[in-house]
Nucleic acid binder design. Structure first.
Lengths: 205, 205
DNA sequence: TGTACATCAGTGAACGCGCGTTCACTGATGTAC
DNA sequence: TGTACATCAGTGAACGCGCGTTCACTGATGTAC
């Protein structure tokens, strides 16, 4: 962007951005390397200066996504700390906030079929995001009476599943039928009921 | 299969079956009309005797899937009837049982990006499946004390979301890390906690 | 029962297309002296 | 400050490939008489 003409200046990031835009508009499968390079104003061959190929480009986009995702959740977690409940709630909200703000990254991360173990950097970024939620869940878990406390990994998996399910089923173009609840409401009420089931929230509220 | 030679006899269903097999092994995006026709032992052009094209083939596979899905859930529902709780539990288990038994249909239905409103038959089959769960949820809902009863559609959406999330995140090849819970356990415990949050299950059990 | 003929499910060749990737190249940038 | 040269990010042409789709066709099946 800075230098005009023959040399692009910041082609690597421009390609990633182009790929993300295409992924969002056409789905993870509609993305092509050729089109991304054209969008960035460059020949397809130029891509190979910066990436090993098509998959590598997607993986890098996903890696950046996981990094931002982890940052966002970490920030949310800190904002609620030291209250375990506040930290947990904020972290959960950050999940949906990320999806709403960076849907193209979300798709690259969770729907592009690239393995999270493809590169070390990708695996690390993914783990970091996972760990934030794990931390929030673990803290909250300590408030459950010990003999009815589920394993932390189970607790955490339930939260992931509910969140991901809400996103996949209720944030995309809702198919025809009008659905009266926003994804945020849906997730928040669902998790609240779940937490009540664990005795973490009183029956009133 | 019955007649050998020039005429296939049951090509339409053979193509659907081939498509489903490919969808399962290669993902919804890896399916190609050419390969499906080859698998069925037939020229690509022959496909157009029975379908309008590639998309139409997938849509028909999904339609059959929704039909079986609805049947399975309806049967499960009846098996628990008239106990609202038994009917609900059985219906929920049928969801995962379907996924385990017909993963390729599940993919065609929920991950192939074909719209459920593509054809009337597809929309009807999808609605029928939805309605079974809706019925199970509505019955159960009546047992919730009226002033803390959530709207049925919200209740139902939570169950869909949790179920779908568990399937998407925890039934495919788990990425490296060993996860100690089966999808069935995960979903069953998750929903049980949720139901407890609604006061539908006692704190003990 | 046998023949003529309509129907229709398949063939096989061809098409245009966009894809990912390779290659030798070129021209801009940055550095040494 | 000016020149020579190495570096390197881009070009553009070419490739082989498999795709979805079309078309005129052919040969098997089923029906009328």
């Amino acid at each position: 962007m800075s230098k005009r003409g023959y040399h692009h200046g910041n082609l690597k990031q421009a390609l990633i951005d182009a790929a993300l835009t295409l992924i969002e508009t056409k789905g993870p499968t509609g993305f092509t390397l050729s089109e991304a390079s054209k969008t960035a104003g460059v020949t397809p061959a130029a891509v190979y200066r910066h990436f090993d190929g098509r998959e590598d480009l997607i993986a890098e986009a996903a890696r950046q996504g996981y990094g931002m995702f982890a940052d966002l959740m970490e920030f949310a977690y800190q904002s609620g700390h030291p209250s375990a409940m506040a930290a947990f709630t904020a972290t959960g909200r950050a999940y949906l906030a990320f999806l709403q703000k960076y849907p193209e990254h979300y798709i690259a991360m969770f729907e592009s079929s690239i393995s999270v173990n493809r590169t070390l950097g990708l695996a690390a970024a993914s783990k970091r995001a996972n760990d934030v939620l794990g931390k929030a869940v673990a803290n909250l878990s300590e408030h459950i009476h010990v003999e009815k406390r589920p394993p932390t990994s189970l607790f955490s998996a339930h939260i992931w599943a509910m969140s991901h399910g809400v996103v996949e089923l209720f944030t995309r173009n809702l198919p025809g039928r009008a659905f009266p609840f926003s994804p945020e409401d849906l997730l928040e009420t669902g998790i609240r009921i779940y937490l009540r089931g664990l005795g973490l929230i009183d029956a009133d509220d």
